[in-house]
């Protein structure tokens, strides 16, 4: 799905091929197994899990665990289910993705088509910032969010994710625009279009593929983030933190089926995005940060 299939000149014998297929299928099972376990066991009543085989399909199908995980499971101290946290995640992800993508596109456009002295040093600094361990910024970030009155709020999380996501989106757009002929920008300048007009009329119409990549990348990263959510979420914890609280709660019986249902609920948005648009995602990853 990422790369066009191309003939390899390598030819293999029948025995080798059988072995290869066997191995490939084995690995496919390895990758699928946890998903299967989660789905199958989220549809079982609890006794069937504790007394039965995790690899077995449910005998007594039920969606009760899903309903519980969604709306009534105990998260922390409140029996709210994951619903409010899911909503938090959505409210956090949408603006964070939108803002960081727009900024990344503009930055990439400037860094490739309006170059100035020292721009590659700036880009290098930006690139490095993508890879820092976030532990190094946790303490001052907590202080600043507190000072700004954004601690424990969704706007606070949006700010954090935009700040630490814009390096990646810039990287994507920069690499993409770098391959876009500069002569077109010059032609448009002579035609009388200015900075924003060129961006709007010439660059944006051809930015579809990289925008898909940037949006998906940011969406998965921000949706899946735990560290920032746990550190700065406060009253507005995102889905990942809530799921962890659900699973780690030490009171009462461990309701595995509810945990699994919750885990799938937390994974569902990114999985869906991946299934729908995964091919662009991978292609972009290849073309972007990790170009071989």
């Amino acid at each position: 799905m990422s790369v066009a299939t191309q003939d390899t000149a390598v030819s293999t014998g029948r025995v080798t091929r059988t072995f290869i297929y066997l191995l490939l299928i084995l690995f496919a099972l390895f990758y699928l197994m946890p998903l299967f376990v989660m789905v199958a066991n989220s549809l079982k009543p609890l006794p069937e899990i504790t007394g039965g085989n995790m690899m077995a399909l449910p005998q007594d199908w039920t969606i009760e665990p899903w309903l519980q995980a969604w709306s009534s499971a105990q998260i922390g101290v409140e029996p709210t289910g994951l619903k409010p946290y899911f909503l938090n995640s959505v409210l956090m992800v949408v603006p964070a993705v939108a803002i960081s993508t727009v900024l990344g596109a503009l930055n990439g456009y400037v860094l490739t088509k309006w170059r100035f002295r020292g721009d590659s040093i700036l880009f290098g600094l930006m690139l490095f910032s993508c890879f820092i361990p976030f532990q190094i910024v946790l303490i001052p970030m907590a202080m600043i969010l507190g000072k700004l009155g954004l601690a424990g709020s969704i706007p606070g999380l949006v700010l954090v994710h935009v700040v630490y996501g814009v390096g990646f989106t810039t990287l994507y757009y920069r690499n993409y625009y770098a391959a876009f002929p500069t002569e077109l920008v010059r032609a448009a300048m002579i035609d009388g279009a200015g900075f924003f007009r060129i961006f709007w009329r010439i660059m944006l119409p051809v930015s579809g593929p990289i925008t898909v990549v940037s949006v998906i990348w940011q969406f998965t990263n921000i949706w899946n983030d735990f560290l920032f959510g746990a550190s700065f979420g406060g009253q507005s914890q995102p889905m990942t933190v809530a799921l962890n609280n659900l699973v780690q709660s030490s009171t009462g019986v461990k309701e595995y089926n509810v945990h699994f249902a919750g885990a799938i609920l937390a994974a569902l948005p990114t999985l869906l995005v991946y299934i729908v648009a995964g091919r662009y995602f991978v292609r972009g990853l290849m073309a972007g940060s990790v170009k071989g």
Binding site: T5, I20, A28, T240, N244, A266, A267, T270, L271, I275
Partner: peptide, 30 residues
Amino acid sequence: QKIRGEGMLRPIYLYPMALSFIVTGTAWKW
């Protein structure tokens, strides 16, 4: 190696990276 079904296998190998480590951890924990 010109594998038939490559288009099906690749997404299977790749999908785990769409999940959060919290989900992965939850699943493998059990």
